[in-house]
């Protein structure tokens, strides 16, 4: 088992911030953790890596209890850039990782080349946010981990760097690394994976295996009340957006059938918006109430 989390609960003072998380991953995959600020994503990652204590439950990573420091030979945690020492160089950081991981120092050059770092001799305090993210990624992957945990790795990255990072993560996944990524960048999440854990208020609200090939339509009609009535009568699943568009999935209703239905009832179709059901769409549905009937 690569990740085994059973009824994980975490409390700060009297407030439960994780309310019984269960995650099981036994084959390499990319999993995204998505949720609004304060939903418990970082707390979950910190609890998984034993940076924070847990109040209840059980966490095992790569088959070992999470409080066994030896897990970090196979598990890497890409955290925010505050973990870096400003007055030390990038090389100092990578050398330290190599030393504690017992990796030969010659591993530094290839990983820097892979991530695109050529400023190792500069002190970290002179790095831009993007440069720090690259260094953090290099530090996280230099030990070729079985499990890579990433907390907002795309923050501060320009589009080119974001593409590089995405490609590296996809390569690592292809090489057999399981990746658990927490991010607000839903477009990038869509490009990386369709396995998404949506978190809210310390719970996993939904484990979605989004079908990215499935189409979703939002149609603006002349009389949406009448259209609603017709679709309800036919028992077709649909929703209404906050702009009074009729929204439905291709799985539930074929577009041609919808057009015929509207024409038969003299409802004029003014606009058709064709969308993928991606992370963003699902996020809106879950957290912003958009698209619900």
């Amino acid at each position: 088992m690569i990740i085994h989390i059973e009824n994980l609960k975490k409390r700060y003072k009297k407030e439960w911030v994780l309310k019984g998380i269960n995650i099981n991953v036994d084959t390499p995959q990319i999993i995204a953790l998505v949720g609004p600020n304060g939903s418990g994503k970082t707390t979950l990652l910190n609890c998984m890596t034993n940076l924070l204590s847990i109040n209840e439950g059980k966490v095992q990573l790569v088959g070992k209890n999470h409080n066994d420091p030896s897990i970090f030979k196979e598990v890497s945690y890409h955290q925010d850039n505050r973990i870096l020492y400003g007055h030390l160089t990038g090389y100092d950081h990578l050398k330290f990782i190599c030393n504690v991981q017992k990796i030969p120092l010659k591993a530094i050059d290839p990983v820097c080349e892979r991530v695109g770092i050529n400023y190792l001799k500069k002190q970290v305090r002179y790095y831009s946010l993007g440069m720090k993210q690259h260094l953090l990624l290099a530090m996280a992957i230099i030990n070729q981990p079985k499990l890579l945990l990433l907390d907002e790795p795309l923050n501060g990255l320009d589009p080119t760097s974001a593409i590089t990072m995405r490609n590296i993560l996809l390569d690592l996944y292809a090489e057999g690394t399981t990746i658990l990524i927490s991010s607000h960048n839903l477009d990038e999440i869509d490009r990386l994976t369709n396995t998404i854990f949506f978190m809210k208020d310390g719970s996993i609200l939904e484990e979605s295996l989004l079908d990215l090939n499935n189409r979703h339509y939002e149609v603006l009609v002349s009389d949406w009340n009448k259209a609603k009535q017709i679709l309800n009568e036919k028992g077709i699943a649909f929703s209404v957006t906050n702009q009074n568009q009729i929204a439905f999935s291709e799985n539930d209703l074929n577009l041609q059938t919808f057009i015929h239905l509207m024409n038969d009832n003299e409802i004029i179709i003014e606009d058709i918006d064709k969308k993928k059901i991606g992370a963003e769409k699902r996020y809106q549905e879950l957290f912003e109430g958009i698209g619900s009937t």
Binding site: T49, P69, F72, Y77
Partner: peptide, 15 residues
């Protein structure tokens, strides 16, 4: 305070 302890605590180190 600076959170650099996070780096040390997520290494295969005997604390």
């Amino acid at each position: 305070e600076n959170r650099t302890a996070n780096l040390l605590y997520t290494q295969p180190l005997n604390k």
